[in-house]
Simulated assay, not measured.
Amino acid sequence: MKVLILGGTGEARALAEALTARGVPIISSLAGRVANPKLPVGEVRVGGFGGPAGLAEWLRENHIDAVVDATHPFAERIGASAFEAAATAQVRLLRLQRPGWSESPGDDWRWVDSLDEAAANLPGDRVFLTSGRQGLAAFAGNDQWFLARCVDPPEPPLPRRIEILLDRGPYTVDGETRLLREHRIDVLVTKDSGGSMTSAKLTAARNLRVPVVVVRRPPRPDVPTVSEPGQAVDWVLP
């Protein structure tokens, strides 16, 4: 049994550790979009495969028996490629995806289907963007003031009035509350990434009554899906 784990998420790292502890040979694949990613245990490859056909060929050449797609909930392209490549190479495929966030009493969430829709529906003038550096171009034509938090420096196009905050989670409610107050934020924009690493901003926004524009997750291929690394281990080793 040899397993390919797609993704640099916390779930992917936990799965790599669990399978390695059980003696299962794994290869973890990272997209390479983050300059200094947190690396999982075991063998790691960085970069793309050349689309579905390239991934299918790679699966065959490396004698992969199973693929676990543990990429970010918004990594649409690799998810589609994994679905097509696994079918072509006749390899088992599982999706490991953390649950999305749920609204709590006191939340003021405005759901949208894309960052472009978010940019067109901002209920405020001072905006905290936590949607990732690759999505900042959607707001380039806006006149609002933006605070954008990213792991790595973003590239143009960017909004005319923007302050970049380079930081990486996890974050605390106290820290997020302080940030919202110091920058007088009146609207938060985020993707429905799920998980606890970056959810403190939602609690802070609720406590300060700051509205949140939430981008829905894109549709994914219809494949078996679990939400916990332990469930993925059970799937790999039934």
Score class of each variant (00 low, 15 high):
Gly124Thr: 12
Arg206Gly: 10
Thr9Tyr: 08
Asp167Lys: 07
Ala82Val: 04
Pro40Arg: 02
Leu59Ile: 11
Val210Phe: 05
Pro99Val: 03
Phe49Gly: 13
Pro52Ile: 00
Pro238Glu: 15
Phe74Gly: 00
Leu166Asp: 13
Asn142Gly: 01
Ala31Arg: 04
Arg209Pro: 06
Gly79Ala: 01
Val34Leu: 09
Arg126Ile: 08
Lys38Ala: 10
Thr177Leu: 13
Gln231Cys: 01
Met1Phe: 04
Ala53Trp: 15
Ser102Glu: 14
Pro123Cys: 02
Ala70Gln: 04
Ala232Cys: 06
Arg161Val: 02
Val68Met: 04
Gly79Leu: 01
Asp167Gln: 13
Leu55Glu: 12
Thr172Met: 02
Ala89Trp: 08
Pro221Arg: 07
Val236Asp: 08
Ala18Asn: 08
Arg92Tyr: 04
Gln90Trp: 09
Glu103Arg: 05
Glu11Tyr: 09
Ala204Lys: 07
Arg77Met: 03
Ala148Tyr: 10
Gly42Leu: 05
Val213Arg: 00
Ala18Met: 11
Val213Thr: 02
Gly141Gln: 04
Ser81Val: 07
Pro153Ser: 12
Leu115Glu: 09
Gly7Ile: 12
Pro40Met: 11
Cys150Ala: 09
Glu228Arg: 12
Arg178Thr: 02
Asp65Arg: 15
Leu208Tyr: 11
Glu103Ser: 10
Pro218Trp: 03
Lys2Trp: 12
Glu17Tyr: 12
Thr190Ala: 01
Phe146Asp: 01
Gly195Trp: 05
Pro154Leu: 14
Ile78Trp: 06
Val44Glu: 12
Asp222Ser: 12
Ala21Val: 08
Phe83Arg: 05
Arg178Trp: 04
Val67His: 08
Val215Ser: 00
Tyr171Pro: 10
Cys150Tyr: 01
Asn121Phe: 04
Gln231Leu: 07
Glu17Ser: 06
Val127Trp: 15
Gly10Val: 12
Pro123Trp: 10
Val214Glu: 00
Val24Met: 04
Trp58Tyr: 14
Ile164Ala: 06
Pro40Leu: 03
Arg98Leu: 14
Leu93Thr: 07
Lys191Tyr: 00
Val226Ser: 03
Gly106Cys: 14
Gly106Asp: 08
